[in-house]
């Protein structure tokens, strides 16, 4: 081997569509909002709907984010994820009802403390439940999709029934704490305070998740693990532990989403997680299974779509989201932000 010529480093040139490609999913959100503006005759209605669409999207994102990462990391599809939503809602709302003297008081601090307590307890409960669920239900069926689907559906049935055992079969109605009731008026549109708070919480959760995934070593391990778990292990990281951690965190987030969803609807039922699962599935599919960013964008699209269409033609709201899913999958069969799998 003779002396080599100096190797000249050079990046592959990207075409315009390649450069634009990654941004297309993000652009869909303003596009949908503009379409909503054109379709909805009254500007104030449009503003109200946009805020509630975003709020709904944020809540779906919080519920769905764990599911998408769990799939990405270990190829585990959890049909029982909705159980964490229900349990989170029931635990959280129970705490809120117990703290009635705090939620009814016209004090912002007391209200927020009560909500915070409810959220923390609900997240602890669903996190612990996630740990147990992973060990008992999911772990024995790694690498076997058919069994995973069956067993996690079984787990969902059992959890739903247990909720009924402990809380009774009736739906529970509730009132939001004083500070979260009512609306503010902006540009002639009534914007419910709670929805604005939900948007804020969703943004914070998304930002925190991105920070962890981009800026911490554990986040790097998770991202690398989604792409090539085998190699992560060959570098010396115990992927299983990381996976269990993600499962627990995802379950706790689903619990948080459950509390928020319960407060949003002002009624909770044992089946609410089951119903939420439909939207959650649509969101993780169109986002690209395993992608947190895709999940976020997908959730906002679904939330907006649901609210705009429900205003224009209530009967087809859910169908419109199926249409959205079909359209996106025709465009990108693996979802908007497909996860690169090494294998």
């Amino acid at each position: 081997m003779s002396a080599a010529p100096q190797h000249a480093p050079k990046m592959a040139q990207l075409s315009l569509s390649d450069r634009l490609g990654p941004w297309m999913p993000v652009l869909l959100i303003p596009i949908l909002i503009v379409l909503g503006f054109l379709a909805i005759p009254s500007t104030s209605s449009w503003l109200t709907l946009t805020v509630s669409g975003l709020a709904m999207g944020m809540m779906i994102f919080i519920m769905a984010s764990g599911l998408t990462l769990v799939f990405g990391l270990m190829d585990v599809i959890n049909f029982g994820h909705g159980a964490f939503v229900s349990v989170g809602a029931f635990v959280g709302i129970s705490i809120l009802l117990m703290l009635g003297h705090m939620t009814e008081a016209p004090s912002l601090v007391l209200n927020l403390l009560a909500v915070l307590a409810a959220v923390l307890v609900a997240m602890l409960a669903t996190g612990a439940m996630g740990w147990a669920f992973e060990r008992v239900i999911v772990k024995p069926v790694y690498g076997h999709h058919l069994k995973q689907i069956l067993v996690t559906v079984g787990g969902l049935i059992v959890v739903e029934q247990l909720i009924i055992v402990f809380w009774g079969p009736e739906e529970i109605y509730l009132m939001r704490p004083e500070a979260l009731q009512g609306a503010i008026t902006f540009a002639g549109a009534a914007l419910e305070k709670y929805r604005l708070v939900a948007v804020g919480v969703g943004l914070v959760v998304f930002a925190a998740m991105r920070f962890v995934l981009r800026r911490t070593k554990i986040g790097l391990i998770v991202r690398a693990g989604v792409e090539n778990g085998e190699m992560v292990q060959a570098l010396g990281y115990r992927l299983r532990l990381v996976f269990v951690g993600v499962f627990i965190a995802g379950s706790a987030l689903a619990g948080l989403g459950g509390v928020m969803w319960g407060l949003y609807q002002e009624v909770i039922t044992a089946h609410m997680g089951n119903q939420a699962m439909i939207l959650i599935f649509i969101v993780v599919i169109i986002g690209g299974l395993g992608s947190v960013e895709g999940c976020f964008i997908g959730a906002l699209l679904v939330g907006l779509m649901q609210n705009y269409v429900a205003f224009l033609e209530p009967k087809v709201a859910l169908i419109s989201n199926i249409g959205l899913m079909v359209a996106i999958l025709m465009w990108r069969p693996m979802g908007m932000i497909p996860v690169v799998k090494a294998k």
Partner: peptide, 14 residues
């Protein structure tokens, strides 16, 4: 076994 989604730096950190 390169992690394509990660930067060169992140690959090295891992």
């Amino acid at each position: 076994g390169i992690f394509a989604d990660l930067t060169v730096e992140e690959n090295m950190i891992l």
